[in-house]
Amino acid sequence: MSKSAPVSPVAAEPGAAQEQARTTAGHLEPERWVEEHGDAMFSYAMLHLRDTEVAEELVQDTFVAALANADGYQGRASERSWLISILKHKIIDHIRRVSRRREYWADLEDDAAETSAFRDDGHFSSPVREWIDNPQQALQQKEFYRVFTACLQGLPEKLNTVFTLRELDQLSTEEICKLLDITSTNLWVMLHRARLRLRRCMEARWLDTEPGSGA
């Protein structure tokens, strides 16, 4: 697929695959790595964190770890997938280190957005509309992710953390509860609030920019 990579003929002998991995990833081109993948990795980290410096540090640590373990890269996944999987571990480790404050997580004050989403009798306060007919179209998918990214950044920090761990990093609820030392009930409440806010934000931003509306 990738036409630029100098792919060697079929790796017939044992060791040849390893050699190829060395040339694909291991032929260390750190400058190219940073240029090609730096922004994507930084963006991924910034979806989880609000602190630019920390995100930069995690990206840097990821590159350093990748460089040290270049031999472990099998060349099966794309280079970026490999780097992102290392970055994910770095992000989760970071969250584990900084979020050992049980009371911070246990404190679930009323959420104004949740309150305003429903009337006093418990019904939705404004209509919930159908989103799109064909979510599979590439352009709509791209737009979906763009809007989602913008809305995610608008979430309060706690909700952002649990939501990204659950939906972007695909951690199980058990893993998240263990990582943050929270109860599953708390986690469910936070995920519910995050989804409620996200869907409202996405509906507002997305439906307003349907094809034909300019922009």
């Binding site: 930084f42 963006s43 910034m46 997938s81 998918q141 992710y145 763009r146 990214t149 972007l168």
Partner: peptide, 15 residues
């Protein structure tokens, strides 16, 4: 994540 890897998810910020 797949989208980030194949480029269909554009970076929203830059180093």
């Amino acid at each position: 994540e797949q989208g980030v890897c194949d480029g269909s998810v554009q970076p929203h910020c830059a180093l």
